[in-house]
């Protein structure tokens, strides 16, 4: 299973702070972009926030074309507002 962590407004919109996707939900050799598409297909309410979010794997920002392994823990990082 591929685990996705959600934060702040994304948690509120999805009603949960983690989402699990099965590899069968994704194309073969999936990328972060594929995971993002699958997430927003399942939670259409996340669409507009996802469009302006960045993604991270293991605490590092990654690009949408980054390959995803099945044991990866991803995080959708909406625009930050600390400070």
């Amino acid at each position: 299973m591929i685990q996705i962590r959600l934060f702040a407004g994304a948690t509120q919109l999805a009603g949960q702070s983690t989402v699990e996707l099965s590899p069968t939900d994704l194309p073969t050799n999936p990328t972060v972009g594929d995971v993002a598409n699958c997430l927003t297909a399942r939670y259409p309410q996340l669409q507009s926030l996802a469009a302006k979010s960045r993604w991270a794997i293991g605490s590092e920002f990654v690009e949408l074309d980054c390959p995803v392994e099945s044991e990866h823990s991803l995080a959708m990082i909406p625009p930050v507002s600390g400070g």
Binding site: F7, A8, G9, L49, K52, A56, V80, G82
Partner: peptide, 19 residues
Amino acid sequence: VTIWKQENSPSEDAQWVHP
């Protein structure tokens, strides 16, 4: 840095801020 703030108004309206 991956930190987010939620603004809470006196009328208990809570809004996450995503600039």
